[in-house]
């Protein structure tokens, strides 16, 4: 296991991050415009000073190596758009909010998705299969910018159960979490269904029946452990996506999360912020994929013995 993790970190994670950082660095610079081009009526002298302050007038390769040097120390540099704030600070402030929202959304997605998928798998091609699966299809099709306002309309404006937006009270978490988690719940439902169906047709399920195990134990003990494997594989990138914030959901509900930085940084040509958020997201994805792979090994002992 240690070999496996070390191998992943040194042979996969670090080279991947290096490539991502390099590509992003040059790509944002290739984009037309710059961090200060939007500011109105800046005299050339001030622009020069600004550039000098942020080290943007040095040759590109020098900028690159400087950035990489700082990166190695974990310093993502100053933000070009938010004066006197570093990218590290900005991420550190916004991430906890997105993390919390993502966690609730994940919880919602897992509960609803697994339950729906399980019910569907146990009675394939019946009403209890078609109804949850049609809803799941709907969940995949409806984008969050439609679902969010719809939920607000029904539950906040008509029924008055929740606030329309904001991030102040515990009840403010509910609607955004559902909006963000719905699509994931739908995917999880479909994956659970197909995973369970496949497992329940395996020979060892018949063996379990032949032993005299009651049906619920067969499903929980012998079925579910194998049936959730596809769901777990999906969860790696999904969790990273959930907790790193969603631009759409955070905008609809006015949540001070990380998602808006992704988009705004790109619009503003905030070079360091773009790089910072991209790298942060990449680290999350890699980290959760690693966690998922470890869970998969635990779920499926066969992987432990494979070279």
């Amino acid at each position: 296991m240690t070999t496996f993790i070390l191998k992943r970190i040194f042979f996969e994670t670090l080279p991947t991050l290096l490539i991502i950082a390099t590509l992003t660095f040059f790509m944002v610079r290739l984009a037309p415009g710059g961090p200060f081009s939007q500011e109105k009526s800046v005299t050339p002298e001030i622009l020069e000073n600004l550039k000098a302050h942020y080290g943007l007038n040095a040759p590109l390769h020098k900028q690159y190596f400087d950035y990489m040097k700082n990166l190695l120390r974990g310093d993502l540099g100053p933000s070009f758009k938010y004066p006197n704030r570093t990218v590290n600070e900005l991420i550190a402030n916004a991430f906890p909010v997105s993390f919390e929202l993502g966690l609730y959304a994940l919880l919602f997605a897992l509960l609803v998705g697994n339950a729906a998928g399980l019910i569907a798998a146990l009675c394939p091609n019946t009403k209890s299969d078609y109804i949850p699966m049609s809803l799941a299809m709907l969940g995949i099709c409806i984008p969050s910018f439609v679902l969010g306002p719809l939920l607000v309309l029904i539950f906040s404006l008509w029924l008055g159960w929740f606030s329309v937006s904001g991030w102040d009270f515990p009840s403010d978490r509910i609607l955004p979490a559902i909006t963000l988690g719905a699509t994931y719940a739908a995917y999880i439902a479909r994956l659970t269904r197909s995973g369970m169906l496949e497992i329940l047709n395996q020979d060892f399920i018949r063996t379990a029946r032949a032993k005299g195990l009651p049906e619920y134990k067969i499903i929980l003990k012998h079925g579910f452990k194998g049936g959730v494997i596809p769901v777990v594989s999906f969860l790696g990138p999904a969790v990273a996506g959930l907790i790193s914030g969603s631009f759409v959901v955070e905008t609809i509900f006015q949540i001070p999360g990380l998602g808006r930085f992704f988009v705004n940084a790109a619009f503003n040509r905030d070079y360091t912020m773009v790089l910072g958020t991209v790298l942060f997201f990449a680290i999350l994805i890699i980290l959760f994929n690693l966690v998922v792979d470890i869970i998969l090994v635990w779920l499926n002992p066969k992987l432990r013995f494979r070279e």
């Binding site: 063996t207 032949a210 195990l213 002992p301």
Partner: peptide, 23 residues
């Protein structure tokens, strides 16, 4: 279920797939 496995047991064709790979 009380008879399965106790009074009447089964040996299957393909032991590789008849035993659970996860346990």
């Amino acid at each position: 279920c009380k008879i399965r496995g106790k009074d009447i047991s089964v040996i299957f064709q393909e032991p590789m797939t008849a035993l659970s790979p996860l346990h």
